Structure formats: C-alpha cells, structure tokens
Amino acid sequence: MADASTLKVYHLPGAWGLPTVSPFCLKLDAWLRMTGIAHEAITASTPFAGPKGKAPWIELDGQKLGDSTFIVAHLAARFGVDPDAHLTPAQRGTAVAIQRLIDENLYWTMVHDRWMNEANWRQFRDVVLGGLSVPARRLLGPVARRGVKKQLAGHGMGIHTAAEIATIGRRDVNALAAILGDQEWFFGAEPSSTDAIVYAQLVNIWRAPLESEVRRAIGQTPNLVAFLDRFAARYY
C-alpha cells in the first residue's frame, strides 16, 4: 500500500451515510481508497480556506493544492499509482467524456435541486453549513445561496425551468445507465477512476432524502443502483 503520512485531505461535511456531501470531495475520497494512498481526512466547515476557495484541497510537501482533478493527477504522479492503467486509449477518451457529462452537466442539476428548491434548501442548509454556529449559519446561508444562484445562471443551467433541468438530469442518468450496460464497472471487469467519479456524483443524489426527479431517474435504472451498491461494498 502506498504511504503518504504527510498527506492531509480537506473535505466538506458528510451526511446520509456519506463521508461528504460534495461529489468532488467524495470523488477524491473514493479515488484515494481505490489507490490505497494513506492520508488524514479533515472536515472543513467551509471551503474558503482552500487555495481556490473550493473543496476539496490537500496539503502535501508543504504546499496546498485545490481542484479534485488536478489533485488526482498530482497524487498519481507523486505516488506512482494509476487505476486506469488497464484502459485503452479509446477508453481513456470515453472516460474524459463521462467526466465532462458529470462535472459540467449532471452536477449542476443536483446543485439546482439542493439550493433552489425551497423544501430541499431548508434541509440541505443545515447539512452543508452544519459545521457553523447557528448565528453564522443564518448570516452565511442567504449569501451562499445567492452566490450559487449566480453560478447556476453563469453556467447556463440556471436559465432553465425546474422541469427542463429535470429532463436534462434524467437524460444524463439514462446515458450513464446505457454506457454501463450489464458490466460490473464502466470499463469491464476492473474498476477505474471513472467508477469513482460516477459513484461520487450519483450516490450524492441517490442517498439524499430530497425531492428530485433525477433521484427518481436513478431509481428507475437497476444497473446503476446495483453499481452504487457494488462500489460501496468494495470501498466503503
């Protein structure tokens, strides 16, 4: 097992049986479990201490590094690990496309459901800001929500209606189900980084007790539900 006794990994709080409610933080956590790199996991109340003002981030060799994708690439080189070594060039290309679908599209449907749906927000607020005092939560909550609304609009997802966003999310889920098919993992018999990425995003929707058409879509794809159970059993 690779050793990284000086590696510190900062992530957002957990809930719903998950170590963190951030798909990007959970992606890194899953990848670290997959590769066996030893580390200290630290829960951060807010992401603002990170070098990019977002979570996750790491401290290693006296430096801070942010963004889960750059962190994974750095750690893979630093510790000489590659859970994607068995992939063909074509599969590596498909892996990038799957990650873009998740990071740049499906993720934002989840953000909309968590932050813009009033009933969901009342539940999620106390989860994502649960590490803060009640006065700080009351002060920061509306500010954070306005910021997320601007991010959604800037991305483009926020200009759509809730029904349109649900349609986008359902299409993404169905695409992932079609790619997985009857395989155990997204590229066959052995797991890869793509499985960690897909797991981290889908399980954050599936486990959250929030109103979501996308969550219902996952429930209607038995192969994805089985995949989530299989990944959790192997690594968690």
Score class of each variant (00 low, 15 high):
A136M: 08
I102W: 00
V127T: 12
L129E: 10
T161G: 09
A178T: 13
G154T: 10
H155F: 07
Q99Y: 08
F186M: 02
D82H: 06
R171F: 00
T69R: 11
R122C: 07
I102N: 02
V148S: 04
A163L: 00
I168R: 00
L101E: 11
M110R: 11
W115P: 07
L132V: 12
S133G: 15
M116I: 13
H86T: 07
W121T: 05
T88G: 07
R145A: 13
A153Q: 14
L176S: 03
L139P: 02
G158C: 08
R92W: 02
A90L: 11
I102R: 01
A76R: 11
G80N: 12
W108K: 07
D182M: 06
I102H: 01
W121H: 05
T94E: 14
D84A: 03
K149S: 14
V81E: 05
I102Q: 01
A73I: 08
G93K: 00
I159N: 04
E184K: 12
H86D: 07
A97L: 12
H74R: 15
L106N: 06
T88K: 08
Q123V: 12
P135G: 09
H74W: 13
W108I: 07
R145E: 14
G93C: 01
T69I: 11
D113A: 07
I71S: 03
V143K: 14
I71M: 03
A175N: 04
T94L: 12
A73R: 15
R114P: 01
R78A: 15
T88W: 06
N117T: 13
N105A: 04
P191L: 04
G130V: 10
R170H: 00
W115R: 09
L87H: 06
E164D: 04
Q123E: 15
A175L: 12
I179K: 10
T167V: 04
A178E: 14
R146S: 15
I179A: 07
G156I: 05
W121C: 06
W185H: 09
A73S: 14
F79P: 00
P191D: 04
G181I: 06
M157K: 01
A189V: 06
N174F: 07
F79G: 00
A178M: 05
L106K: 05
W108A: 05
L129K: 12
H155R: 09
S133C: 05
A162I: 00
R125L: 12
S192R: 01
E104S: 06
F124I: 10
A175V: 03
R145T: 12
F186Q: 02
N117E: 08
S192T: 04
R138F: 05
G181N: 08
A73V: 10
Q183P: 00
G158D: 05
F79C: 00
L152W: 03
E190A: 14
G158T: 06
F186A: 02
E190Y: 03
V173L: 03
L129H: 11
L176M: 03
Q99R: 15
I168L: 01
